[in-house]
């Protein structure tokens, strides 16, 4: 038997193993370094930057809720959004319910805050009164759906802290995968993992992790359309709750931009005059 060959083989094997272990340790360490945080933040800032200046938008939305037995329920509503340029403030939104009939005409006005509870008013046509809601409901479900308010409100950089995890293909696109940790104290989430399309900086998929850090929901946004040669909007958002088996699908009509909505349209006194 050729002993020198045997020894060189052994040394080679040891070297390869050592290198592999070293790499594994390095790649593990690479997780959550300051460089990755910076890259994550830059991706988030780019997402925000690309959506700047849309002004205001309007659309109609259909919401389909499904439970484990396949039972489903449909809601129809109109959405108006007014961009608030100040990066310390969230956007303003107005939601008008059209269906089911018993809540038709109910209108919901929300001034999104970044780290505090939002300012919210609801107009109840049956009571003919506007009620201001004071609650910690950002983490709660939006009209019984699998979407929380915090999943639907506008993207603001300051809502989260970020870490870039990796790049990977997602469907036909290439994606950045970033982790974002909610800064709102009473958020329902410990973290979110977002897949951001590297070409257009659209958030195509988000995994939501609950307070005990287990996978709670997955959101997939699709049927993207670009408006005004800049602003991308998904026309289908599908949320699955992995823990309860419930699902919610949102489908959107084409958006209208810059319809001339202004601050004056977004106040509580207007709620009662809506149709």
């Amino acid at each position: 038997m050729n002993t020198s060959r045997y020894w060189s083989g052994l040394i080679l094997a040891l070297l390869i193993t050592g290198a592999a272990v070293g790499l594994a340790i390095l790649s593990n360490k690479a997780h959550a370094g300051p460089a990755e945080d910076q890259k994550g933040l830059e991706i988030a800032q780019e997402i925000d930057r690309r959506d700047l200046g849309f002004g205001d938008s309007k659309t109609e939305m259909e919401m389909i809720l499904t439970n484990r037995t396949g039972e489903s329920s449909t809601r129809k509503l109109r959405l108006e959004t007014l961009e608030v340029p100040d990066s310390e403030e969230g956007d303003k939104s107005l939601t008008i319910f059209d269906h089911p009939r018993d809540i038709k005409g109910t209108a919901f006005l929300s001034f999104t805050k970044i780290l505090e509870p939002d300012d919210q008013w609801l107009y109840l046509p049956a009571l003919k009164r506007v009620k201001r809601i004071s609650s910690a409901n950002k983490s709660g479900p939006f009209v019984g759906s699998e979407f929380a308010y915090e999943d639907l409100t506008s993207f603001e950089v300051a809502k989260y802290s970020y870490t870039w995890l990796r790049d990977e293909p997602c469907g036909e696109m290439d994606c950045f995968v970033i982790e974002r940790i909610p800064q709102y104290e009473r958020s329902g989430y410990s973290k979110q993992i977002a897949w951001v399309d590297a070409a257009e900086y659209r958030i195509v998929k988000v995994d939501f992790y609950d307070r005990k850090d287990t996978l709670l929901k997955t959101l997939e946004s699709s049927e993207w359309q670009q408006y005004l040669d800049q602003y991308w909007r998904p026309h289908r958002m599908h949320m699955v709750n992995h823990q309860t088996g419930k699902e919610t699908t949102l489908t959107f009509q084409p958006y209208q931009f810059r319809e001339g909505v202004n601050e004056a349209n977004f106040n509580q006194s207007r709620l009662a005059r809506l149709r």
Binding site: I133, S135, K138, G140, P141, F142, G188
Partner: peptide, 8 residues
């Protein structure tokens, strides 16, 4: 109204 006021 109540449903919209409840947290996570």
């Amino acid at each position: 109204l109540f449903e919209m006021s409840l947290p996570y």
